[in-house]
Design a protein around this nucleic acid. Structure first.
Length: 483
DNA sequence: TTTTGAGTTGTTCGA
DNA sequence: GTCGAACAACTCAAA
């Protein structure tokens, strides 16, 4: 009877898991589930107390899923490059399987481990699992990787077949006569993590329930209105699935299949629902796109995708950066968003664009400072998507917006949070400000400020920069690079 | 090789 | 308040 180790990483689920299914199949159920807590990832530049806490919750949920099926999760703490070959030897495993990860760190680590395992005479197999299309799966007519989203997405959709999102069921699992030693899953405090804000319910059951709720057409707030509602940060219009996708508590094939079946199953599906499903699938394609961009252009993690933009001479005012982080810029939609990030470890997508534009184009701070701050606080923080989003906002990335397209934080607020619901929720000192002034409270006359229970400059900051002026400075900053 | 069409999510200005 | 045009030019991808 052979044993195969399945090395869990960003795939904390049993359903629809390519490597896990293959490991169970090839070992006739004698798959040994393993997770390694890698100190390098717990302490690196992008380490996050919130995300690590979320991970620990995910491990507990995964262990519970496994135990319900007569198995369990083996946990080890340390360097995977040492632990895996040693553990494979100790357990006399015929092989080790895992799902691919596409960051430069992961690629280097995995290829080292694969070579070691093979030198030891074991099989080492990696699988595509976290995306629909990976690496060179989607190429332009010239045989090169796309760097522009729209033609990438067109080809992605054209070549998609049902086989690309076929699901595997959870296999029957066996148990060895004796389980190897396992470190306990640590409590967050044991890792020095002190996250006080609540997290979503972890695990694949919670993830599947969230997906079902999002796609439920009988409720008004399901996907039917997604195309419109998703842009309103004060409304529950987005899927909220990103934390589950980040750690693979939810599979991407499961998402895609469920979405497409909603549209296809019923010919009566109204047009706005079809549009919404299509819009959401586009978001899933964006996710594949940025993974693919990072795979082909790993330099984006240290500098601009378009390297001429590394010459941008950012003023990088630390005081302005600190005010942005704290949500005290005097621009209500920006402050609401930054406080949501601290309070929930999550931020609405529209708000992410607004605060990214504000940091780079209004405060003239290097996008990498914002990228790092997001990674440290977001429970869904993903190197590929986060980097892609920041570089897009900064105008240094793939498919860059024209550089003069600078968000106006006041008009964005008026357009996407007209009643100020979002602002009022996260900036309570503005709770009683009338809608008319909610996005520019400093324009209230003193008497109006008294009526609204807020004195700007005392209870809430006056704008720390002048948008119009900073916009001109940003244009000048970029113009210097262009010539 | 050359040409052509198009590019996530905007803003501002003037009629 | 609403509308259309200008913003500035460049790169990518496909024909």
């Amino acid at each position: 009877m052979i044993r195969i180790l399945h090395w869990f990483r960003r795939d904390l689920r049993l359903n629809d898991n390519a490597a896990f299914s293959a490991a169970a199949h090839d070992s006739a159920g004698m798959v040994l589930p393993l997770f390694i807590l890698d100190d390098a990832l717990l302490q690196g530049r992008f380490a996050s107390a919130a995300r690590s806490t979320w991970l620990l919750a995910g491990l507990r949920a995964l262990d519970a899923e496994l135990r319900a099926r007569g198995s369990r999760l083996i946990v080890r703490r340390g360097d995977p490059q040492q632990i895996l070959p040693a553990l494979a030897a100790e357990l006399d495993a015929a092989g080790v399987y895992w799902n691919r990860d596409y960051t430069p760190y992961a690629i280097k680590r995995d290829s080292t481990i694969k070579a070691q395992l093979k030198a030891d005479g074991r099989s080492a197999r990696s699988f595509k699992d976290g995306v629909i299309f990976e690496m060179d799966d989607v190429l332009s007519g010239g045989g090169t990787a796309y760097t522009v989203y729209t033609p990438y997405a067109r080809t992605w959709r054209k070549q998609l077949t049902p086989a690309d999102y076929a699901l595997q069921t959870v296999p029957e699992l066996g148990a060895p006569a004796q389980w190897p030693a396992s470190d306990p899953i640590p409590e967050p405090s044991e890792l020095g993590l002190d996250v006080t804000h609540p997290l979503p319910a972890a695990g694949e059951q919670a993830a599947l329930a969230s997906l079902a709720q999002f796609l439920d057409l009988r409720r008004n707030q399901g996907i039917a209105d997604y195309a419109e509602q998703r842009n309103l940060p004060g409304s529950p219009g987005t899927s909220r699935l990103s934390p589950y996708l980040r750690l693979g508590m939810l599979g991407i094939r499961t998402c895609l299949r469920a979405a497409l079946e909603r549209a296809d199953a019923n010919p009566q599906t109204p047009q706005n629902t079809r549009d919404s499903i299509d819009t959401w699938v586009s978001e899933l394609i964006w996710r594949d796109f940025y993974v693919q961009v990072l795979y082909h252009h790993p330099h984006v993690l240290s500098g601009a995708f378009r390297q001429e933009y590394d010459r941008l001479d950012w003023p990088n005012d630390e005081g302005l950066f600190a005010a942005w982080q704290a949500g005290r810029t005097g621009y209500p939609i920006v402050d609401a968003a930054m406080r949501q990030l601290r309070r929930e470890g999550w931020m609405h997508n529209r708000a992410r664009m607004i605060v990214a534009s504000f940091l780079t184009k209004d405060l003239l701070v290097d996008w990498r400072w914002g990228e790092r701050h997001f990674m440290q606080l977001l429970i869904d923080g993903d190197p590929a998507a986060n980097n892609g989003g920041w570089q897009w906002a900064a105008g240094t990335g793939t498919d860059a917006q024209p550089y003069f397209r600078i968000f106006n934080p006041v008009s964005q607020g008026k357009k996407f949070d007209p009643e100020g619901a979002y602002v009022r929720r996260y900036v309570p000192e503005l709770a009683n400000v009338p809608n008319k002034f909610i996005h520019e409270p400093h324009t209230m006359a003193p008497a109006e400020q008294i009526r609204a229970d807020v004195q700007v400059g005392r209870d809430y900051p006056a704008p720390i920069v002048d948008h119009k002026q900073q916009r001109e400075r940003a244009l000048a900053l970029y113009a210097r690079v262009k010539k």
